[in-house]
Amino acid sequence: MNGDETFLIVDDARLARKMVRSFVAKARPDLTIFEAGDGEEALKVLSGIKELHYATIDYNMPGMNGIDLAKIVKERCPTARIALLTANVQAPLRKRAADIAVGFIDKPINEAKIAAFVTQTATIP
């Protein structure tokens, strides 16, 4: 059953969104899940959500990149737990995410990585 807490998935790949949705639903069936295919759509979705609790954001997307989007989301929703979810596993990008207090989850994702993120046991912000 969906509850008051919300989860936003931002990824231009439909498969990635489906996978995250599936793993989130398994780990936290109480969360209400929203999806967006790019930064612009994410901001539109965000304006319709009362309060955001979790978000995973892809880095390499058409238009705005994931770091720029994460900065805006953090500004609007300072208490939300946000992670960059990307196949771009390079150290400079991990550092840029850490610098803005955003977590980092590397693709390919699995159930354990998403479960750790939504049950708040991972060592990320």
Partner: peptide
Amino acid sequence: RDALTEIFNIGIGHAAGVLSE
């Protein structure tokens, strides 16, 4: 088609991580 692109994207993302190091 979208999934094919994403799978290669992930593979190449990891390859770029290696090249970066």
